[in-house]
Design a protein around this nucleic acid. Structure first.
Lengths: 146, 146
DNA sequence: ATACAACTTGGAGTGAACTTCAGGTCAACA
DNA sequence: TGTTGACCTGAAGTTCACTCCAAGTTGTAT
């Protein structure tokens, strides 16, 4: 039964677009919280669980490692950003990272458009900070890219 | 000497931000062309070589695999986009991918801004094509994308 | 009672992308 | 003359992110 009480790991896997093994693996490494179990030890999931799984695929495709995305998912589980100021800051800094990604992707697009001449391809085009050099407040640095 | 004739692998590694081992590895797997050698078999590089190496780090951070980026780098080496129409199409499709990345990153940013409510986090937010469905010859499909 | 499907677990295997290692060459310098 | 340092090669080892497997349990169907 697809029942009102919860979904099996199989159903969940189909919904979330992750294999059953992958879901168990994510649980094992702590990317997902330990799932509830039925009396027979089988995992049960709710739709909310699926919704916390979907972003994983999404973030992974951007080159984010499973470790890096943990705080993101923790946040997604905690319902809102009302959390602690520290978490808020963390998300803000993630946001800045993403904005930089967008900016340099946009540069690549521009370069492709302008014929992609070797010397310019990525001479300065890729300004992702190796290790985020958390600029204290980064006033002019991040602009919207559109 | 940093000399006029070429750079050592060490200098190149510093310039390109890749380890010497990584550069040799990239050569081995064919991501970089076989470097010129001196009489003593040591590799020599020119500034242009560094410039073809820099984008690798850049593209990698976006989650592109080494295999995927090969055509990109081939192009970067061939001086201009005057190449073949096939290559042009390929680059165009890469460009579209990147644009989709930008779009969904932007969605993430928007969601963070709007408080990141669980259910919406990535319900539909992630529309990257799973496997690039390499269209055999890209019929009418790719022209201008903007 | 027996078979079967759907799950469980822990652990081993896989592929990509490096990184490290062991052993060797070569040129320059004390 | 030896030894040091920068490089070479091929191969083995590591990490990440899975993926597969074997053995066991439970619930349902025949």
């Amino acid at each position: 039964m697809t029942g009102s009480i919860g979904m099996t790991i199989k159903e969940t896997s189909e919904q979330a677009g992750l294999s059953e093994d992958t879901i168990r693996y994510y649980e094992k490494i702590g990317l997902l919280p330990r799932a509830e179990r039925k009396a027979n030890r089988h995992r049960i999931y709710q739709i909310e669980d699926v919704e916390t799984m979907k972003p994983i695929t999404c973030l992974k495709k951007r080159g984010m490692s499973l470790d890096e995305m943990k705080p993101y998912l923790d946040l997604a589980r905690n319902d809102a950003l009302q959390a602690s100021p520290e978490v808020f800051d963390l998300i803000q800094s993630h946001k800045r990272k993403i904005e930089q990604q967008v900016a340099s992707l946009q540069q690549i697009i521009d370069l492709i458009d302008s014929r992609l001449v070797r010397g310019n391809f990525a001479a300065e085009g890729c300004s992702l900070p190796e290790e985020e050099k958390r600029m204290p407040n980064a006033p002019g640095a991040n602009r919207s890219v559109s």
